[in-house]
């Protein structure tokens, strides 16, 4: 719906308008985050402490990785329902098979890339709807994971692995440094390279992208590969943080990441999305979770707030793009 509103042939002023809109959306998100933080600070002295803020940021890191990947897929008119399953499968298989932390990460990322490539192949070459392709991968991975572990994953995590997820360098959590590096890298890729421009062009109009000679099928595959790799990273950081490998690691991240991507300004019709936007949205979602706990509200209320927020955010963007 928004795709028709945007002219695929981005003339210069047009792109500036897009940038201005993105900046305004970022400000709205920042404003919203400031408001909920301010309200919570007024209600509870336990919220605005360095320790609690650090907790929020560390907890937001895995969702941050996933949401960037989800956004890249959404930009090419896709959707990745398999991210949570990738997180758990990568975490379960690679930590069970290997003891060395660097090798766990290398194998994990390769596995994530491989699964992403399968998703991308099904979508780009077999013309399967992204929703179904990734739904099927999600279920198959779930089966493989449970069949391999017979329902009870075991294995201990190496010391270094735990440190990566919970430790810090000069007071800054390692997970956040990793997220910052990936975030800047993906932002640069999306906004400053031909690859990024082609991704957005494809999302605006697949035909136009094809006409310019872009390898459109490969673009879609690459988007899913990126999502798979980032989900793998997120899964490894999450099990490292929790300290236990679980068959349901990351459960709920598929829908949370879609929600965060949409709240952060990605349009399901494709072509639109920014790394700072979706990262802020992820931070908002995780903050809400933390706030519910800090204020001693029931956990169930968190679901009601989250659902309302998802619909409101999407409604606000729709109104803006129509008006």
């Amino acid at each position: 719906m928004t795709a028709t509103a945007t002219n695929p042939a981005n003339s210069k002023p047009n792109r500036n308008t897009v940038r201005a809109t993105q900046r305004r959306e970022l400000l709205i998100l920042l404003g919203f985050l400031a408001v909920i933080w301010a309200v919570t600070t007024a209600l509870s002295p336990r919220f605005l402490t360095p320790a609690n803020l650090k907790d929020i940021l560390i907890q937001a890191a895995p969702l941050g990785f996933v949401v960037i990947g989800q956004m890249i897929v959404i930009i090419v008119r896709g959707l990745d329902l398999s991210v949570a399953s990738i997180m758990a499968t990568v975490a379960v298989l690679s930590t069970a098979l290997i003891d060395s932390t660097p090798v766990i990460f290398i194998v994990g990322l390769l596995l994530g890339a491989f699964i992403g490539a399968i998703n991308g192949y099904l979508v780009a070459y077999r013309k399967v709807t992204p929703f179904l392709a990734t739904l099927a991968t999600m279920i198959v991975l779930q089966g493989i994971r449970f069949a391999y572990t017979k329902g009870a994953p075991g294995g201990t995590l190496p010391e270094m692995f735990r440190w990566l997820a919970t430790g810090d360098i000069l007071g800054i959590p390692v997970a956040l440094i990793a997220l910052a590096v990936v975030g800047f890298g993906m932002h640069w890729l999306l906004e400053r390279t031909v690859f990024g421009r082609r991704l957005k062009l494809y999302g605006d109009s697949p035909e136009a992208a094809y006409m310019t000679g872009a390898p459109t099928k490969l673009l879609v595959v690459m988007a899913f590969v990126i999502s798979g790799v980032l989900a793998a990273i997120a899964g490894l950081f999450l099990v490292g943080y929790v300290g236990i490998v679980d068959n349901w690691t990351g459960r709920g991240y598929e829908l949370d990441s879609i929600a965060a991507a949409v709240i952060g300004g990605a349009a399901l019709s494709g072509g639109k999305g920014s790394v700072p936007g979706v990262l802020l949205a992820a931070l908002i979602l995780v903050s809400l979770f933390n706030i519910v706990v800090i204020l001693g509200l029931s956990i169930e209320l968190q679901l009601v707030i989250k659902g309302t927020l998802i619909i409101l955010a999407a409604a606000v963007y729709m109104k803006r793009s129509q008006g």
Binding site: E300, L303, V304, G307, T308, I310
Partner: peptide, 9 residues
């Protein structure tokens, strides 16, 4: 997805 989350809560 939003209404489902709200109703589950």
């Amino acid at each position: 997805l939003g209404t489902s989350t709200i109703l589950a809560g």
